[in-house]
Amino acid sequence: MTPLRISGRTRLLVFGGLLYVSIAWALNTVFVKLAVTQIDPLTFTLFRFLAMTPLAWVFVAARREVIAIRTQDIPELLVCAACGYGVYQYLWVIGLSHTTAFASALLGGTTPIFTLAIVAVFGHERVRSGRWLGAIVAFFGIAIFEGILVGRFAIRLGDGLTLLAAVSFASYNVTSARLLDRYSPVLLLAITITMGTMMILPGGLWSLMRHGIPQFSALTTATYIYSVIFPILLTYPVWSYGITRIGAGRVALFGFLVPVFAGIASAFLLHARIPHYELVGAGVALLGMAIAQFLGSRSIRPSQRTLPTTR
């Protein structure tokens, strides 16, 4: 997909839109963090996905796409759904409930690095050395973030689960890349989110039975509605539009802003205190991810049509 030539005004509009998407995703992490302090994470996730699943199909219908699923693709779709939603959501939301919103956004942002590692290990694509350099810098940044330079290095439970969630979503990127040859991004999202919800259902029901009917305060209701509507409906079209106008590589750079905005938002909304070493580590990790993005932009078939993470 070659980016189109666009005027300065359109470019400004696209950049503004992508900035909005970065802020919206960052706020989603902060809002879910806020919600899971009041409602069990698995219960909250079940609620979210029960409402998000029909919404994804509304999106498919609005784009007038033909719903057709090939029987032979079902095993691959199930793996894809598990990596992108079923397993991913368990790891991500439980991880988030055990760590800060800032750490969750930063560590979740390492997904492209793990995607790179997976395609390299399985020999799907040749990876340039520049990308590996970026990956090493990014992981060194995460080590700093986890306290290696202040003598307290230990991967916390929440951070470990979030990193596993990033690995899971990286696997989703790899499996979905094959399926995107046969399914449109929106249809694939709807199919996998539906299958993923079925996988979330047992954990969510178990959590519901264990904790009873949750109490929804006005704040929890508001965060819930936000987390249902924003991650897909009110951001994905803008993100996709950005890819068609300026290309996937440049759009991906806006993804690096998500942890930055999440850090700022969590400081204001959750009164989170971020130690200096975490800020330094986050800076180095983001630099590493940016290096990996720039120095190897032609080495990997960037998933121009891959969907952003549905956190």
Partner: peptide, 9 residues
């Protein structure tokens, strides 16, 4: 279903 589940209260 989306509307029916959107408002938990």
């Amino acid at each position: 279903p989306f509307l029916a589940l959107l408002y938990p209260p």
